[in-house]
Write a protein that binds this DNA or RNA. Sequence first.
DNA 1: AAAAGTAGTGGACAAAGTCCACTATAATGC
DNA 2: GCATTATAGTGGACTTTGTCCACTACTTTT
Lengths: 144, 144
Amino acid sequence: MLNQSEISAIRNFNRDYTKLLGIMNKKVLNTPLSWTEGRVLLEISFNNDKTPIEVATNLELDKSYTSRILKRFEKNDLISKSPSDTDSRSVELSLTADGQKLVKELDDRSNQQIKDLLTDLSTAEQKQFYQAMATLDNLLFTRK
Amino acid sequence: MLNQSEISAIRNFNRDYTKLLGIMNKKVLNTPLSWTEGRVLLEISFNNDKTPIEVATNLELDKSYTSRILKRFEKNDLISKSPSDTDSRSVELSLTADGQKLVKELDDRSNQQIKDLLTDLSTAEQKQFYQAMATLDNLLFTRK
DNA sequence: AAAAGTAGTGGACAAAGTCCACTATAATGC
DNA sequence: GCATTATAGTGGACTTTGTCCACTACTTTT
């Protein structure tokens, strides 16, 4: 069991990291998209032909909120909706060419951001960083 | 320099961790406070006699937004304001007894949350977790 | 003493998110 | 097959959260 000072250190890291992620997430939005919109678009890009409900549940968003976002996306010609052939209540979402272009942009920016973040570290330190993060990932997420 | 798959892994971790932190942050709010309000209260507790402007700049909040939060806090008797004796435009903030009590509650909850998060890990794994996080903290924040 | 800057507040608004009700279809129990 | 129950998607109405701007009262700079 961890002692109090270790727990405090973890909380401290979480606080700082929340802030960092917040800043990074905001910056990705030098696109016309809000953070949540960005997540939605990426979610669709991960797997074309996702339904709105899948997007909403994966991102833990309100379905009506999601619906509105998707409507905006359609209006701005980022995605298109096509009727599902297995469930006629539902629709399948796919990225338009513009949508794909924007995803690529977001993607490039995100990659660049990570590089920028690590730019002050030596190669050895970067590896160390990666290793430490892989450890956390494994302990928190992958194992489950 | 990290390769693309390593960068992707980092981004992936960031995405998952953002989500986790989001959930954890929301949960702390089984108090009457929103997340930002909680941060503000903690910020004051870190160092009594902070001024509103210090709080706002430390947390990167809009000062008018901060002002309103503080007003609410005062109304709910969580903090009190006393005129600064060095700058008569400014005020010094301090926690009331109720405020301190709430801080303690938030604090306990946060500690518990970390414990819960790690509860499925063995002691060795918890140490490993702590170590990995300390590495990240050092590379990202402490060094600077 | 004038000019420029800063602390704090409030009005007005925008953005983000929630809640509820509704329609249309699907799935389930019988 | 038919009634019941559940689910996908949408929209209205609202709350919460956060931003922008202008203003007052003071401080600092020159």
